[in-house]
Structures are given as structure tokens and as C-alpha cells.
Amino acid sequence: MRIAVIDLGTNTFHLLIAEIVDQRFEIIYKTNVPVKLGEGRINENIIIPAAFERGIKCLENFAQTINEYEVDHIKATATSAIRSAQNGTDFVAVVKEKTGLTIEIINGNEEAELIYLGVKLSGAIQDRSLIIDIGGGSVEFILCDTEKLIWKKSYNIGAARLLQQFFKSDPINDIDKNAILNHIQTQLSDLFEKCEEYQPKILIGSAGAFETFAELIINKQNDHVDIKNVKTYHFNFDEYIATSIELLNKDYTERAAMPGMIPLRIDMIVMATLITNYVLGRLKLNKLSLSTYDLKMGSLAGFL
């Protein structure tokens, strides 16, 4: 059985095609496109025309690839940017008309569930953990242990939302930094209550920004690790902290020049760093790991 999974994120659209035989899978095609659907007016809940067109064009290309691979089943999910946009359902309708693809708009809880399934599939959950997935529109947190999901919630504090609302200085100054941290603190009060109750031992970052953190450290240390071909990566905590301080102290040009940085994340990574460091500090955690498996792998897990 051949499966195509499409993940329509706020920043990036992903396509993964896998062959499933006897409850085992092999990924035979994988790509992502920085569509930036949340560009411009995400906090006003609007997909602007240029982003709308980029999204349609990308999905037309995905549909062509899916046809070429003679896929049996397609699962396409849309998350924060589309579910919160006033014209999100219009986008889904135009995609259906132009490509034949049926997109399911999932809510935050469903998104968190799929992220958990993806991270679980990677084998990253070795202790009581807090999973974090920093998207452009939303951030999902999942408390879990090696056996079960304990608690989950999605928050509208994604990197693109914070960027558009608060990022007015570069390098980011203390005024903007404090405004972001105050906003995060207000939004995440119930998360910290749950963490007080369940005491996670490690923070697991789901793909995205955490892959960039890993790439920056690997390049700086000249390590021989290919993030594209591993399921998990364990950060040296001191190296992560040093890298995060660099990211907060550099401007756009300096961040762009860092080996391992990708264009999409040059600004977004500042927001992701602030969120990650705040959560680590508030929970007094000094263990951080990466799962390269995320929502799309959670969607795939549903077919296994």
C-alpha cells in the first residue's frame, strides 16, 4: 500500500510518500516547500492573496507528484494558519477544485495527538517527557511517559504570530524580548500547572526549529551527524544554551551566515529560541532532545 501524507503548516507545506508492507514502512519520497501561508496578516486571521496563490501552486505540484507515484491513499491535514483564517475554508475549496485533494482542517487537540504519535514512532520518549512543537501559527505541548499520553494542548503563540506582533528590533532588544516573554507566560499558565503535577524530566522538540538548532550545533562542532537520516538527536545542553545566546545576540545578516541556518528560519528561530529557553528555565530542565518525526509521521502512523 502506498500512502501520501500532506501537512499544510503555517510556514511550510510537507509531502511524504511511503510504501507500507506488513506494518512496516519505507519513505520513498519526501519534500517541503516554504509557502509562508501565515505571511503578513496571520494575527488578523487572513491568508493574504500572494500566500494563497503560493499555497495553491505548491499543492498543484504535490498532486502531480502523487499521481506520478500512483498513491493508494492520501491524508492531507491543515493546521493553525488555515483553521484560524476567515478564508481558510475558501482555500480548502479552491485546492479541491484545482487539484482534487481533500484537506482536513484539524483542531489543536488533534494536531497535538498526531505530533505525539509521530514522536512516539521515533523512539524519542524514554522517560516522562514534555514534547514541544513550535509551528508558525501554534505551539503544541504534550505531556507523556513511555506508555501513554498524559495531557496535551495547542496554544496560538506560534513563531509567525509572535514575529508579526512583537519583533520590532534586530538584534532583539530587551523591551521586545520582555513583551514576548510576558505574553508567553500569560498564555502558558495551565501548562506549568500540569508540569508541576507531572514533573517531566526532558523536553523533546518535534522537528522544525529543533532541527535547525541541531544543524547549527553540528556545524559548529564539525560533528558527523546527518539530521535528515536520524530519528532522534540528543543535545549537549551547554552547547544548546551557547547557541541560543548567539541567536538572540545576532542580527538578520549574522544569523543568515551561521552554517546550518535555512532562509525560512532566520527570523523565526529567534521566536523559537525565546519560547524554548523560557520553558526550559521555568521547568528547570537541563535535558533537551530532538525527534525528527513530527505531525506528518503521526499521520503515517495511523496507517500502520
Rank of each mutant, 00 (worst) to 15 (best):
S154W: 06
K177D: 00
T273L: 06
M268S: 14
I266T: 15
E197K: 15
Q199W: 00
S154D: 06
T292M: 04
Y252D: 03
H234S: 14
K284A: 09
L191Q: 12
E211M: 13
I217D: 07
Q165R: 15
F237K: 06
E239Y: 09
I175F: 14
N229S: 13
N249F: 01
I217R: 05
S206R: 05
N229A: 13
M271E: 10
L290M: 11
D190A: 06
L162I: 14
S291H: 08
E215V: 00
N156H: 13
I150T: 10
I266D: 08
A160H: 10
F235S: 07
W151C: 04
K287I: 00
N182V: 02
K228R: 14
P259C: 09
P263S: 13
E239K: 11
C195P: 07
S289M: 14
I227Q: 12
D190M: 10
V279Q: 02
I227S: 13
I157A: 06
M271H: 06
K231T: 10
M261G: 10
Y252W: 11
F210W: 05
P171V: 01
I180G: 02
A242P: 00
L288Q: 06
D238A: 14
R161V: 07
T292A: 12
Q187G: 04
G158K: 08
L274M: 14
F192V: 10
I275H: 06
T212H: 02
P200R: 05
T243K: 08
D251A: 01
D170E: 13
H224R: 12
L290E: 09
L283H: 09
I202F: 01
I204Y: 09
L264F: 07
E147F: 11
P259M: 08
D238Y: 02
L264W: 01
S289W: 03
Q164D: 15
I184V: 09
L188A: 06
E211W: 00
I227C: 11
K228N: 15
L247H: 02
V225S: 11
S291C: 08
I217M: 07
A207F: 06
K153N: 15
N222D: 11
D170W: 02
F167N: 04
E254I: 01
H183D: 10
K220F: 04
S244N: 08
S154V: 02
S169R: 02
F235M: 11
M258R: 12
F213L: 05
A242Q: 12
L264Y: 01
L181A: 01
F192T: 11
L163Q: 13
N286A: 03
V279E: 03
D226W: 03
L285G: 04
M271A: 11
E215N: 15
K177V: 00
F167M: 12
V225R: 11
I184G: 02
D267W: 01
V225W: 11
L203W: 10
Y278D: 08
F166P: 04
F167W: 11
I245C: 04
D223P: 00
L188D: 05
P263M: 07
A160Q: 12
K177S: 10
A179T: 07
Q164M: 12
N249Y: 01
Q199N: 13
K228M: 07
A272L: 09
H224V: 09
T273H: 03
Y233K: 09
L216H: 08
Q187C: 10
Y293K: 14
A159I: 04
K177C: 04
N249S: 13
N286R: 10
S289C: 14
L288P: 01
Q185S: 15
A159F: 04
